[in-house]
């Protein structure tokens, strides 16, 4: 494990904690896309099938369980918690899941490293994770009025992806045979989706004003 990978995992964990903190303490999910959260739950459920078949390390198993439990809890909170669900902005969060899920699944059937159920599910989860943030970005663009925690949540997710790219570069130069085109390209696409958001995030940070996205 290198420093970029560890920092990436920690920012990913921090993003989830920020979101849970917002939901749990403020009892509000305003500005949070349920669609994106449901897609993440699907991403983790399909990627971590290897929990049942392979043991990598205690760290690996624990982190996988944390991401699974937290993503399903967030979905549960937004859908079912009697106070939190009232703050869900259903009319603005209109992105359709299958626009993303179906193409990703078809792509995973065609472009994968091995044609097995576990492998296709794993590849599908990579493609889906790359685009799962889209409903959230659309929602941010629509509501424009972004609270600090939501802004920090998206920023931390973007930071996590950027650090994973540094991790891949590091591993490519330090580990023999470390070449993973599917992981790299989907990860790069995912990070690029944050570029626009990052630009406005840093602008607002630099000028010390509230984050607002242009319509």
């Amino acid at each position: 494990m290198n420093i970029f990978r560890l920092a990436g995992d920690m920012t990913h964990l921090a993003s989830v904690l920020v979101l849970l903190l917002k939901i749990h303490t403020i009892k509000s999910c305003a500005g949070i896309s349920l669609k994106t959260q449901e897609l993440y739950a699907l991403v983790f459920a399909t990627r971590y099938l290897d929990l049942f078949t392979d043991y990598i390390s205690l760290y690996n198993t624990l982190m996988k369980l944390i991401f699974l439990v937290s993503s399903f809890s967030i979905v549960w909170y937004i859908r079912h918690h009697k106070i939190v669900r009232r703050s869900y902005d259903k009319d603005q969060d209109t992105f359709r899941h299958y626009f993303l899920v179906l193409p990703c699944f078809l792509l995973a059937l065609v472009i994968n490293e091995k044609f097995t159920v576990k492998e296709i599910m794993w590849t599908f989860s990579l493609y889906l994770e790359a685009v799962a943030i889209l409903p959230q970005l659309v929602l941010l663009q629509r509501t424009r009025n972004i609270d600090n925690l939501t802004g920090q949540y998206v920023f931390l997710l973007g930071a996590y992806r950027s650090l994973y790219i540094l991790n891949w570069i590091y591993r490519y130069f330090t580990e023999p045979h470390y070449v993973h085109w599917i992981t790299w390209i989907s990860g790069l696409v995912q990070t690029l989706l944050y570029a626009d958001f990052f630009y406005y995030y840093f602008q607002s940070w630099k000028n010390n004003v509230k984050l607002e996205l242009p319509a």
Binding site: R5, I56, F67, Y178
Partner: peptide, 10 residues
């Protein structure tokens, strides 16, 4: 792919 190095990532 499954069972190789990239699978230690999350």
């Amino acid at each position: 792919s499954v069972n190789d190095d990239v699978h230690d990532e999350l």
